[in-house]
Design a protein around this nucleic acid. Structure first.
Length: 391
DNA sequence: TAAGAGTCAATAGG
DNA sequence: CCTATTGACTCTTA
């Protein structure tokens, strides 16, 4: 009997009484190598099902909390990623640093967040990870010792980086691995310039770029793909969320507020934002504060001669919605899925200006992205139904 | 088929 | 060790 309930996720909206029978793996044909992770808490539902049922989650709040817990306990992203999320360190880093808003995530993309949420709810989450860490260390020591006394290195093969770039090969293996391409600063600059002129270059342009920069066309193509998507992501996360620094080793999130990016220097930000707001609820256990508000990309008119009205974009702050979970359940933050914006419960107007050094870049990126936006606008224009517009 | 989403994995810095 | 960055790859999607 035990309380192995699938906490939360199912919470209140899953009570769809008779759920499907336990075994309902979508194993038709095949889809994936199966579920990589058994789902932390062990439950009868696959995370995929949980993801599907999950209400909107505040990805920002979740990652914030996870980062906090990890740093507070000296747990690394690698361990966390591999044991909890089934992702590699780099992916975890990326995810934690730039969570995409829930409504912009695909089902697959939501999975890690659901896992994180589940993990946060597990009262033993930390100690379990700590145990893992200890175990790893022990195993490592053991290996080391035995290889020493043995006089021969016996690598378990768990973590064996294949050396690629070395001029010499280990011998037996064919180092047919392609060495990683590393673009130089000039090349990147050139590509960025090209992007600003044309985020979606024609094959011809790509060819030209490639030959001019002495790169493979596939590299150029990849670069554009990556750059577009990363720019987009950066943009909305920068706009959306205020900077929140969590000091290492100390908790007590002191979310610093940053209403609007200060358009230092020259240009003015003719930003206009309609603030749509809505209250937000807190997670039952754990997550206490969060925020996140979205607004669409603002296209700013870039004009120097223009007025420099520095009207701070009005970001509405709503009073703390003190919605305490009844009896400690609300596992998820319920929100009415709102199209383009979500709430922001701001806290103390931090006196300390948490300036973001990236503001400059932001401007540049915004500008760079303008073309991108235009491109999409054009696309949208060809659709009758505004609901199909994607922004 | 091209673009987007999600990742992986090499690597650069700390 | 650890984390951040980023070119390339695998699937989806339209």
């Amino acid at each position: 009997m035990a309380e192995e309930s699938v906490n939360g996720l199912t919470g209140d909206l899953s009570q769809s009484s008779g759920l499907k029978p336990p075994s309902d793996d979508p194993s038709c044909g095949d889809s994936q190598p199966g579920t990589p992770l058994p789902v932390p808490g062990h439950s009868s539902l696959s995370i995929q099902e949980m993801v599907a049922m999950s209400p909107e989650l505040d990805t920002y709040a979740i990652t914030k909390k996870v980062k906090e817990v990890l740093t507070d306990n000296n747990l690394g992203q690698r361990l966390f990623g591999e044991t909890i999320l089934g992702l590699t360190q780099g992916s975890v880093s990326d995810l934690l640093a730039r969570p995409k808003p829930w409504h912009k995530l695909s089902l697959k993309g939501r999975e890690p967040f659901v896992r994180m949420q589940l993990w946060l709810q597990d009262p033993h989450s930390v100690e379990k990870l700590m145990d893992m860490k200890r175990l790893e260390k022990k195993a490592y020591m053991k290996r080391r010792l035995s290889s020493l006394s043995d006089g021969h290195s016996v690598d378990g093969g768990l973590v064996g980086p294949d050396y690629v770039q070395g001029s010499q090969s280990p011998g037996p293996q064919q180092q047919l691995k392609k060495p990683r391409v590393v673009l130089g600063p000039e090349e990147k600059e050139a590509l960025k310039r090209a992007y600003q002129q044309k985020p979606y270059p024609s094959p011809k342009t790509i060819e030209e770029l490639a030959s001019q920069l002495n790169l493979k066309t596939s590299t150029v193509i990849n670069w554009f793909h990556n750059y577009r998507s990363r720019i987009r992501r950066e943009l909305f996360i920068e706009e959306i969320q205020a900077a929140g620094g969590v000091g290492p080793g100390s908790e007590g999130g002191s979310p610093s507020l940053r209403g609007s990016k200060s358009g230092e220097g020259d240009s003015c930000d003719g930003t206009e934002s309609e603030g749509t707001v809505e209250a937000r609820q807190v997670f039952g256990s754990g997550l206490e504060d969060h925020r996140g508000s979205y607004k669409d990309h603002d296209m700013e008119a870039d004009s120097e001669a223009g007025a420099s009205n520095n009207s701070p974009s009005q970001i509405d702050c709503i009073p703390p919605s003190s919605s305490c979970g009844p009896g400690g359940l609300g596992l998820f933050s319920l929100t009415e899925a709102s199209p383009g914006s979500s709430a922001s419960s701001t806290n103390i107007p931090a006196s300390g200006p948490a300036r973001n050094p990236r503001d400059n870049n932001l401007r540049k990126k915004k500008a760079a992205n303008l073309n991108n936006i235009i491109h999409r606008l054009e696309k949208a224009a060809s659709k009758e139904d505004p609901s199909e517009w994607e922004f």
